[in-house]
Design a binder for these strands. Structure first.
Lengths: 266, 266
DNA sequence: AGATATTTGTTCGTATGTATT
DNA sequence: TAATACATACGAACAAATATC
C-alpha cells in the first residue's frame, strides 16, 4: 500500500478527524466514486483507519455538511456519495456573506451585469415548454394584488420568473449566480420591507419587459433578450432604491416623531 | 436575514445532532454573538441539551465545517464564533461546481460582464498604496519568462493583479465573485494546460491594458477603467479559447498518432 | 523552564433506533 | 412478525493540548 500522506508532523499536529476526512476525500477521487456509490461501512472505516467510532462519525459528519456524502441507516445503509444541492451551496455562501452587509445597490450592480447575459444564453436554448412556464408565472402578477399577502406572493413570483429563465442557460455558474442573487433579494430584510410597500416595482413596466422577453426568446433573438433585461434591471434598481430612500425617510420620522403614527410589523 | 428554521416533528424524525446544530445557531443569533465570543463549553452544552459528548461534538463539527465556529483546547478554550474565511467559502462553492464541468467560455462570459464593473468600483476607492501594489505585481511579468516555472508564476501573478483590484471595490459580493472566477481559472486543469503553452495571454497587450488601468484609476476615471477591462477581458478570452482549440488539436493528434511525439508531463 | 489545572480530543463498551428481508 | 444489518446515541475513562503560575 502506497500512502500519499501530505500530513507531516511538524505542523501544529493535525487532528485525527481531519486526517480521516482527507483520507476519505482521497479515497473518493482515487476510486472515482460517483453519486450513488457507497463508501465502506462505519465498521470497516473504523478498522481501516484504526480509529474509534466517534472519530469516524465526526469525519463523516464533516463530509455530510460539505454535501459530499449522505448517510442512511438500515441494512445496505452507510455513507453514499452525493452531489451538493444548489440550495445547500447557497446556504453555505449565505453564511459567508452574512457579515458583509450587502446593500440593494450591491446586488443590483451584479444583476445589471449578469441578467442580460443570462437572458441571451437562455434565448438560445429555451423550448416551448419553458416559454409556457414563463407565461404562466406572469399570470400570478398580471393584476392588482387584493391584499398584502398577494402582493408578497407577486413579488416572489417575479423573482421566480428570472429563476426559470436561469434554468435554460447553458452556463452553470452564471445561472447559479443569478439565482443566488434572486435568493438574496428574497432574504434581505431591507428588501422584504420594500416588498411590503404598495408598489415595489412598477408592475406594468415589469410585465411589459417580461412579455417582450418571452417574444424575443420565442424568435431566438439573444441580443434583443439581453437588451430587454438590461433595461428591466435598470428600472427595477431605480425603483428599489427610491423605495428604500422612502423607507429611510419614514424611519427618520420615527426617530424624530412630530406627530407620526408608528406602523411597522415584524 | 433572520431565519427561524421551522423544525417540525412529523418529518422523518430529526436527528439529535441536527437539532443541536439548529439550537446552537438560534443561540448565536438570539444572543447576538459576534466573532470572538465563546459558546458554552462542551460540558455545559452536554447538560443543557441532555445529550452525550459524542452528539454534541458532532454538532460542533458541523458548525465548524460551516465556518461558524472554531474550537480550541486548553484552559479558557471552547467553541468560538468565527467569520467564514473567503478561502473556505470558495472551497465549499467549488465542491458544488465540481460536477458542473465548467468551461473556459463559461467563466469568461462572467468575467467579461463583471470585471469592468469591478474596475469602475475600485477606481473610486483605491489609494496610492494600492496603485503601488499593482505596479509591483506588473514587474513580475513585464519580461519574457526564462523557463516554464517562471511562465507559470507570471500567469498566476496576472490573475493576482485582478485580485488586488477586487480588494478595493466597495461591493463585497462583486469582489468575491470576481476573485472566485480567478481561482477557478487557476484550478481548472484545462486552464492549467493552457498556461503551460508558450504564450498563454498576449503579454504585451495585457500589460498595456493593466498600465492603462492604473493610470485611469489614478485619475479617478471609473468609466475609462471599465472600458479598459472590457477590452482586456475580450482579448484574454479570445486568446484562451484559441489556445484551448490548439490543445484539442494536439490531443486529437495523440489519439490518431501519425508521427506525433508524446509530450505531456504531470 | 517546569508543574499544574483546564478544556478539548479519542477510545471503548453498550444500548437503542431504523430500514430491509 | 421476527431476524438481521446497519447507523445513532450514551457514558465513563483516558490522552493530548494549552494557558497560567
Amino acid at each position: 500500500m502506497n500512502k500519499i500522506d501530505p500530513a507531516f508532523s511538524d505542523r501544529p499536529r493535525r487532528k485525527r478527524t481531519d486526517e480521516i476526512v482527507d483520507a476519505i476525500k482521497r479515497m473518493i477521487v482515487e476510486h472515482g466514486l460517483a453519486p450513488g456509490d457507497r463508501l465502506p461501512q462505519e465498521r470497516e472505516l473504523i478498522s481501516q483507519f484504526a480509529a474509534s467510532k466517534g472519530t469516524v462519525r465526526e469525519a463523516l459528519k464533516a463530509l455530510e455538511v460539505q454535501g459530499l456524502v449522505s448517510v442512511r441507516t438500515g441494512p445496505g445503509g452507510g455513507a453514499f456519495i452525493e452531489r451538493m444541492s444548489e440550495g445547500r451551496a447557497m446556504s453555505l455562501l449565505s453564511n459567508f456573506l452574512f457579515a458583509k452587509n450587502l446593500s440593494i445597490a450591491n446586488i443590483y450592480e451584479m444583476r445589471k451585469a449578469l441578467e442580460p447575459q443570462l437572458a441571451a444564453s437562455a434565448a438560445a436554448h429555451i423550448d416551448e415548454a419553458g416559454l409556457t412556464r414563463l407565461e404562466h408565472i406572469i399570470t400570478i402578477y398580471d393584476h392588482e394584488p387584493a391584499d398584502a399577502a398577494e402582493r408578497w406572493n407577486q413579488r416572489m413570483a417575479e423573482l421566480d420568473f428570472h429563476g426559470v429563465v436561469a434554468e435554460y442557460s447553458d452556463n452553470p455558474i452564471l445561472a447559479f449566480t443569478c439565482r443566488f442573487l434572486q435568493r438574496l433579494l428574497k432574504d434581505l430584510t431591507i428588501a422584504q420591507d420594500i416588498y411590503l410597500q404598495p408598489e415595489p416595482v412598477s408592475r406594468a413596466s415589469g410585465i411589459g419587459h417580461q412579455r417582450d422577453l418571452i417574444a424575443a426568446m420565442r424568435r431566438r433573438d439573444p441580443a434583443a433578450a439581453a437588451a430587454i433585461l438590461a433595461e428591466h434591471m435598470t428600472e427595477a434598481e431605480n425603483h428599489m432604491l427610491s423605495l428604500q430612500a422612502q423607507l429611510q425617510d419614514k424611519f427618520l420620522e420615527e426617530i424624530h416623531p412630530s406627530r407620526t403614527v408608528r406602523r411597522r410589523s415584524s
